[in-house]
Each structure stands twice: as structure tokens, then as C-alpha cells.
Design a protein around this nucleic acid. Structure first.
Length: 481
RNA sequence: GGGUCGUUAGCUCAGCGGUAGAGCACUCGGCUUUUAACCGAUUGGUCCUGAGUUCGAAUCUCAGACGACCCA
């Protein structure tokens, strides 16, 4: 053949889906004398004497190769054994390129009638079972490349993820938002209740952590005069792994000056409905058997109302933690020691009785101040803050505030967090002096929003686990032996 | 952290105390309309690891590793 098994390049004239669409009118048994060149991976081979059928798949899908010994001998005079070579040297899994014309077989399969072929890259590993595919879930994650080769659904999931991320950025860019990148390496992790990954900078001999949120830096940018900013990027939290959690995940945070959390609810439902329309072609989708209607507007309801609906307990009537604890225990609810106030127990009651049942998109609004150290005090409800979380299919999907811009209040809130940290809550936040100083310079009233991109993509791709939407999820390394 | 299930050929799996199996893939032979091609032949194993019970363990017991799911 005179060529190695790893070619330098190839010029495809078409992607397979283009041929399938452009020649849908070709009748069974008919040929069309157009020169085409396609490249891809050999998925199946059926060799019968002097005729062979291969299935070749490129990124867009499969097309059949119609390979006749007589045709190849005539069109590749330099290689009289061309047919023997393609049928004996090419295995399923190999990447090849072919040139030829089109023919629809008697059985109706559009095929490239092969006139010449080149090996582009030899596969030394066998493909997974062509009928069962990769059903070993662990192998799907560890060897995602194999999963992508054999599972069209997996390819579609990551295609949709790319479309979703692109649509989000475009939607925001068109509305005057700027994406500005903020540090991943931070000396004071802030903006969320979470444990960070710790690392170290050698030259400065400086302990650093990976960011657990982008919030405090984006707010500094708002102080600096950028009125609409966002960042879509990777966040790291040193926490457990589950179908809803991966230690590194993707979020977007959006800040809009002169707006409040009501504006952010409008923005959230418009943005997500738009992305859903772009990715799924509709704002009504199915997720794990449930029909989800993302058509705005979405239900907006206070946490107090939801807990009252679910438990009959009216938390606005409670004064002491002791009476709440007694009432919750009477309802069979757990009362954790760390939940040391009426407000924290409200959140506990919400998580235990309401959260999982919020299937349709629901803005849960007006949270207790104790759990929300970065949100502004509610304009009319003492003890609460102007915050919402968006729940879809029982999962927290977004979180937003009217941002706290009063530096004195902010310092007190973060100091209260530090006290909790000292008391053993290792997810409590800490005071970031530089951030406080930025607030002292004066931050405009601002609405802020965070959306979990992975959970949103799970919804848009009907994926049950976050690992299905992260190309390479964190797994324990395979045993050292 | 707790519970349930799983780990056997490259892939998908069966076998559940008595010689390690099937289909696909690979290799070889045959075949000009197949598409899970077909027909024939060959090849392929640390039955996750370790200990125990037993005349005998892939199979039973215990411990561990890894994974999936559920719960906290």
C-alpha cells in the first residue's frame, strides 16, 4: 500500500448527514455519478466474497460503503490488491477515508460506491460490543471516548451542553452583559457555604484555595463600574460525590446594577426558557417521565407558605427555637443541632418536606437572614432577606439575591459566620476584608444570580446523573495494581 | 457515614460445591445486495484481591478494593 497506518490529512467533500439529506431522492438500485469523499470510523463490516459493505460514521452519523472488487481493481490500478487490503486490513474501529460515487442499494441504503480508500488511523483496541454498546456505567465514565463512539445519545448530550452554554452567553451578550474572568486561585474563599480545595503557591509561599464561587469578585467589578457582568466557569467544592454533585462543576453568576431579586426572577425565567427553546425546540420538555413546563411565568412563592402547605406549621408565628423544635418533632421531622435558630429550622423543614416535590419550576422566595449572609435584608419582612432559589424537578437550579451592599451590615453578617465556623460549622463563610473595603467604596443596588449549569443541562438532556453531563467526571483512580 | 446490588474472555453476559461457558469481536477459510450478514474452523481466562471452610471453591464464609443505586 505504501502508506503507514497514520495518515497526515484527508479532504472530505461532505459530512455523511449532508449526503443523506441531499440524495434522499435517489431510488433503490440507482447510482448517481457525483464524486464524494468521506472520512470516519468503520463501525461494522460485512464482507461477502467479492463484495463488501462497511458502515462508516463521522460526527454527523453513519453512511454505508459499497465496496466491489471489480470497481476497486479498475479505479486503483496501482494497487491490484486494493479489495483484499480493505477487507483484510481494515477492522471495525479503524478510521479510513474513501472516495467514490453514490448508489442506493436494492435494500434502500444510501451508500458510497468506493473507488479508492486510505487508512487514516489504525485502531489497536477493539470497539465495545456493537449490539449492547457500553453498558458498564463505570467504563462509560472512565473511557468516555468509547462511550462517545458507540452511543449517539451521549454525543447528543454533549452537543446540547455546548449549544446551551453558547446560547446563554449569546443571550447575555446581546443584553449588554460583559463576561469578565475572575481568579480561580484565592486566598480567602468566599461567596458560598462550602469547603474549598487547598493548594499552595511556591514562589510566594502562599496557601491558596480554589474558588467556591465567583460572587465576591464579580461584585467588586460592579463596584468598579461594570453594570452588567457575568462569568460562566468552573467552581470547585471539596464535598461528596452524588448524582447531583461533582467536586468541580460549572456555574454562571450574573450581576445587574440597579436591579433587585424580582428583576432577577424575570431574567432567570426568560434566560432559561430561551435556552430550553434553543436546545430542545420547545419550552415544554420531558424529564425522567415528568412533563416540565418552562414557559414563563413561573410560580413565585415564599418559603413560609410552602412549609405551611406541607406541614401545617406557620413559622411566622414562632418566637423561640425550642417551640419550633417541639413542633417539628411532633411532625416527625429531624431537628439537627447545627440548626440553632427559628430561621435555620424553617430551612430544615423546607428541605425535609417541600424541596423534593417542587417538580415544575418554582421560585422559592424570602429566606431567613441567618442562612444568607450576602443577601440584602428584606424591604418589609424583618428577619428575612430578598433571596430566591429556583427549584426544578426537586433540585436547586439557581440562587439569587437583591445583593447586600451595606458594608456595615455585611461585616456583621460575615462576623456571625466566622462565629459559626469557630463553633464547628466548617462550611460557614469568613470575612473578606478587601471585599468589605470594596463595599465601603460604594456598590450600586444590584441584583445577583447564580445558575448551576450542570443541573440545567441534566434537565435539558433528560440525564439522571450529573456524571452524564460532565464529559470526564471525577472518579477514584483505578486500583494501583 | 449507613444500606442494597454488582465485579467471570477485548465487549455483553450465563454458570452458584465436581474439567471455565455462550454470543459478538479478533485470527483463518468460503461467499457479489448485506445492514446484529451468513456458514465453517481456530484463538482467547489472576472467575476483583486476600484469608478461611471443604477431598475439592468462580460458586459457601469473613475481610478488603472498586463501582452503581438508595438513604443521611
Amino acid at each position: 500500500m505504501g502508506q503507514g497506518p497514520y495518515a497526515l490529512r484527508f479532504d472530505p467533500s461532505h459530512r455523511t448527514v449532508e449526503l443523506q439529506q441531499a440524495h434522499a431522492d435517489l431510488a433503490n438500485g440507482e447510482e448517481r455519478d457525483v464524486a464524494v469523499a468521506v472520512a470516519g470510523r468503520v463501525m461494522t463490516r460485512r464482507v461477502m466474497g467479492k463484495l463488501a459493505f462497511f458502515t462508516l460514521a463521522d460526527e454527523t452519523g453513519p453512511i454505508q460503503l459499497f465496496i466491489e472488487k471489480a470497481t476497486l481493481s479498475a479505479s486503483m490500478p496501482d494497487d491490484p490488491e486494493a479489495f483484499a487490503h480493505i477487507t483484510s486490513l481494515v477492522d471495525a474501529g479503524d478510521l479510513i477515508g474513501v472516495q467514490g460515487t453514490l448508489r442506493r442499494t436494492d435494500r434502500g441504503e444510501l451508500s458510497v460506491k468506493v473507488k479508492s480508500w486510505q487508512m487514516l488511523s489504525k485502531s489497536l483496541q477493539p470497539l465495545p460490543d456493537k449490539w449492547h454498546g457500553l453498558s458498564d456505567v463505570e467504563k462509560r465514565y472512565r473511557q468516555r471516548y468509547l462511550d462517545l463512539i458507540v452511543s449517539p445519545d451521549t454525543r447528543e448530550t454533549f452537543r446540547r451542553r455546548a449549544v446551551a452554554v453558547s446560547a446563554i452567553r449569546r443571550w447575555l451578550d446581546e443584553r449588554g452583559f460583559l463576561e469578565i474572568e475572575t481568579p480561580v486561585l484565592q486566598s480567602v474563599p468566599g461567596g458560598a457555604d462550602a469547603r474549598p480545595f487547598e493548594t499552595h503557591h511556591n514562589a510566594l509561599d502562599l496557601p491558596l484555595t480554589l474558588r467556591i464561587a465567583t460572587e465576591l469578585h464579580l461584585k467588586r467589578l460592579v463596584v468598579g463600574g461594570f453594570e452588567r457582568v457575568y462569568e460562566l466557569g468552573r467552581i470547585f467544592r471539596n464535598e461528596g460525590i452524588s448524582t447531583r454533585h461533582n467536586p468541580e462543576f460549572t456555574s454562571i453568576e450574573v450581576y445587574q446594577a440597579y436591579a433587585d431579586y424580582n428583576d432577577m426572577m424575570d431574567l432567570t425565567e426568560q434566560l432559561i426558557a430561551h435556552v430550553c427553546q434553543q436546545v430542545c425546540g420547545s419550552t415544554t420538555i420531558r424529564y425522567q417521565g415528568n412533563e416540565i413546563d418552562l414557559t414563563p411565568p413561573w410560580r413565585r412563592v415564599t418559603m413560609h407558605e410552602l412549609v405551611k402547605e406541607a406541614t401545617g406549621l406557620d413559622f411566622t408565628a414562632f418566637i423561640s427555637r425550642a417551640e419550633v423544635a417541639e413542633a417539628m418533632e411532633a411532625k416527625g421531622l429531624a431537628v439537627p443541632a447545627l440548626a440553632d435558630s427559628v430561621g435555620r429550622l424553617l430551612v430544615e423543614a423546607f428541605e425535609q418536606t417541600v424541596e423534593a416535590d417542587l417538580i415544575q419550576p418554582t421560585f422559592v422566595i424570602d429566606y431567613p437572614v441567618e442562612n444568607s449572609p450576602l443577601a440584602r435584608a428584606h424591604r418589609s419582612k424583618p428577619g428575612l432577606v430578598e433571596r430566591f432559589e429556583l427549584f426544578i424537578v426537586g433540585r436547586e437550579t439557581a440562587n439569587a439575591f437583591s445583593e447586600l451592599i451595606d458594608p456595615v451590615d455585611q461585616r456583621q453578617r460575615l462576623e456571625a459566620q466566622m462565629a459559626r465556623k469557630a463553633a464547628g460549622d466548617d462550611e460557614a463563610q469568613q470575612v473578606d476584608e478587601d471585599f468589605i473595603q470594596a463595599l465601603e467604596v460604594g456598590m450600586p443596588p444590584t441584583g445577583g444570580l447564580g445558575i448551576g449549569i450542570d443541573r440545567l443541562v441534566m434537565l435539558l438532556t433528560d440525564s439522571p446523573s450529573i456524571r452524564d453531563v460532565i464529559a470526564f467526571p471525577l472518579l477514584r483512580p483505578e486500583s494501583v495494581n
